[in-house]
């Protein structure tokens, strides 16, 4: 099966610093791949490169088998992106934010569909027509997640998606991500939340200083071993 997302020997520089070094991985449809790493490991850089917002120094980056540099617009059309800090417009309401971004993506913007997505992320109905300036961080994150859902694309790029969510919302979100993958979507998620990654991911890639230093696959039954990942993340052996 063709991987929905592929990075082959990818190296990326930002401000003349090498942020990603010779990284290779792929994400198949129906798969959740979590890139796990600390601050500055290059996780977000990987997502931005898939979106064509950063240009690789070397290597290849493909979306649905086609080089991103060859057809940037096509790559973005099939990709929904959830940015790290729920970057939406504070002067717009949840409905208005969703309608605006979706209209740019040429996606449907009928209010019923918007409400269904907001229901899925459990955003209170009474808040939906208020401007985001009055929202908590978690509420904004829910709107951003709803936007990613509404794009209804075969590929999702999630940058620290549970940042700002309360524990219950995190659990609900992880369930949602699994259900999206079960719908044959390819999901690339970057996070430093070891527990969340193990809960939801089929595979985990461990990034350290721009290099992919380890990987974990979900066993046939159960989840990826949190303790083993945590130990690798912290740079120590598992007891």
């Amino acid at each position: 099966m063709t991987a929905a997302l592929e990075a082959i020997n990818l190296s990326v520089e930002r401000s003349k610093q090498t942020v990603l070094k010779d990284v290779t991985f792929g994400v198949a449809p129906g798969e959740v791949y979590a890139l796990l790493g600390g601050n500055g490991a290059g996780k977000s850089t990987a997502l931005l490169t898939f979106l064509g917002l950063l240009t690789p120094k070397s290597g290849t980056i493909r979306v649905q088998g086609r080089s991103v540099s060859d057809d940037l617009t096509a790559a973005r059309r099939v990709t929904a992106y959830l940015p790290e800090a729920a970057t939406l417009y504070e002067h717009l309401s949840a409905h208005e934010n969703l309608a605006y971004f979706l209209s740019l993506a040429k996606a449907a913007t009928d209010r019923a569909a918007l409400d269904r997505a907001l229901d899925r992320v459990a955003l209170q109905p009474e808040a939906r027509d208020k401007r985001l300036g009055s929202y908590s961080k978690g509420m904004r994150q829910k709107v951003a997640i709803a936007l990613a859902l509404l794009r209804d694309t075969p590929i999702l790029l999630l940058d620290e998606p549970t940042s700002g969510l309360d524990p219950i919302a995190i659990d609900e979100f992880n369930t949602l991500v699994r259900s999206l993958a079960d719908d044959d979507r390819a999901i690339l998620m970057v996070t430093h939340d070891v527990y969340g990654a193990c809960q939801v991911a089929d595979r985990i890639g461990l990034l350290r200083k721009g290099e992919l230093v380890g990987g974990f696959d979900r066993p046939a039954e159960g989840r990826i071993d949190t303790e083993a990942v945590h130990a690798a993340f912290a740079g120590r052996a598992v007891a």
């Binding site: 064509g52 617009t73 504070e90 971004f101 740019l104 040429k106």
Partner: peptide, 14 residues
């Protein structure tokens, strides 16, 4: 500055 440029471009807008 509000970091909305990346999500805008990510919608497929050039």
């Amino acid at each position: 500055e509000a970091r909305t440029l990346a999500p805008l471009l990510a919608q497929g807008v050039s």
